[in-house]
C-alpha cells in the first residue's frame, strides 16, 4: 500500500549524522508537506501583524465603535442579533474543517470516492462562508454606507444631550453618556449628523467614526476571504485530480489532499483569531 511513511524506517537507531546527513527525511515528513507548514507559519506572521495593528489602533481611540453594535444584523431583515451571524460563519468553517479532516482520512485508506465526497462537502462549506462574508460586506457597504473612508459607526467621546431628532430612535432632549454607541444614517442620499450640546455648553455635530475601523475591517476580512477563496480554488483543482484518478498511482498517494488540508485548516485557524479580535473582544 502506498503510504506517506519516510524512506528510512525508524527502527534502526540513527546517529545525528545519519539523520541530518542527507538522503532521508529527518522530520519524517515529505518536502511538500514541510514547505506547506513553513508557508503557513509565514502567513501566521502576516495575519498577526494585521491583527496587532488592529489592536493598537482600536485601543488608541475613544470613538472606536463596538463590534456588537456594528455587526448585529442577520439575513431576513433581522436587526437586533449581535454577533449571531458571525457565529454562524464560524460554525460553517468549523464544519468544513471537520469534512476536510475526513477527506484526508479517506485518502489514507485510499478510498477515492470517500475523498471526493468529503472534499465536495468542504468546498460547499467554503463557498457558504464566502457567501456569508459577501452578505456582510454588502450590508455594510450598500445598506449602512460604511467604506474605507467613511465610517458611520462611532461612540460618543463626551456626555451630552441631543438638540434634534433623527426620526428613528433619537428624539430632541435625549441624553447620552461617553461611550454610548451611535450610528449615522443617510436620508435622501445625504448624511444626517445631529446637533448636540455637551456638558461645557458647546453645540457640536455628531462625528463620523474612525476611518481606521472600516479600513482594518475590509483589509483583514478581505485578506482572510481571499485566503478562503484561493483555498476553494485549490480544493476544486484537487477534487478534479482525485476524481480523475491522478493520485491512485502516485507513490505518496493522496498526500496532496493532506497538504491542501493543512492550508484549509490554517484558514479556519486564522478565522478563529479574526473572529476573536474583531467581534468578541
Amino acid at each position: 500500500m502506498a503510504s506517506t511513511a519516510s524512506t528510512m524506517t525508524s527502527t534502526i537507531p540513527m546517529t545525528a549524522e545519519d539523520k541530518w546527513g542527507g538522503g532521508n527525511e529527518p522530520m519524517r515528513a515529505s518536502y511538500g508537506k514541510l514547505m506547506m507548514w513553513f508557508f503557513l507559519l509565514s502567513d501566521a506572521f502576516t495575519f498577526s501583524g494585521l491583527l496587532l495593528a488592529y489592536g493598537a489602533l482600536r485601543m488608541s481611540n475613544d470613538a472606536w465603535p463596538l463590534p456588537d453594535h456594528v455587526f448585529s444584523s442577520f439575513p431576513g431583515g433581522i436587526h437586533n442579533a449581535p454577533l449571531i451571524f458571525v457565529t454562524l460563519m464560524t460554525f460553517v468553517l468549523i464544519v468544513s474543517s471537520v469534512t476536510m479532516f475526513k477527506a484526508v482520512q479517506e485518502g489514507h485508506r485510499e478510498n477515492k470516492n470517500g475523498v471526493a465526497f468529503w472534499l465536495l462537502l468542504t468546498i460547499i462549506g467554503g463557498l457558504t462562508f464566502l457567501g456569508c462574508q459577501a452578505w456582510e460586506w454588502n450590508t455594510l457597504i450598500n445598506k449602512e454606507h460604511m467604506t474605507i473612508t467613511t465610517n458611520p459607526f462611532a461612540r460618543h467621546t463626551e456626555n451630552g444631550v441631543y438638540l434634534e431628532g433623527d426620526g428613528h430612535h433619537i428624539k430632541p432632549g435625549d441624553t447620552f453618556k461617553k461611550g454610548d454607541s451611535y450610528m449615522l444614517h443617510k436620508h435622501n442620499g445625504e448624511w444626517v449628523r445631529l446637533k448636540y450640546r455637551n456638558e461645557k455648553g458647546e453645540v457640536k455635530l455628531q462625528q463620523f467614526g474612525p476611518q481606521a475601523f472600516g479600513q482594518l475591517f475590509f483589509t483583514i476580512t478581505g485578506f482572510h476571504g481571499f485566503h478562503v477563496f484561493s483555498g476553494v480554488v485549490l480544493l476544486l483543482i484537487i477534487l478534479i485530480n482525485v476524481i480523475s484518478g491522478v493520485y491512485v498511482e502516485r507513490r505518496n498517494g493522496y498526500e496532496m489532499v493532506e497538504k491542501v488540508g493543512l492550508y484549509w485548516h490554517f484558514v479556519d485557524l486564522v478565522w478563529v483569531f479574526v473572529f476573536l479580535c474583531f467581534y468578541l473582544l
Binding site: 488608541s60 475613544d62 472606536w64
Partner: peptide, 14 residues
Amino acid sequence: AFLVDGGWYYERKM
C-alpha cells in the same frame, strides 16, 4: 511587545 509599544496598555483610552 508591539501592542504594549503601540500604547495598547499604557495609553489605552477605552
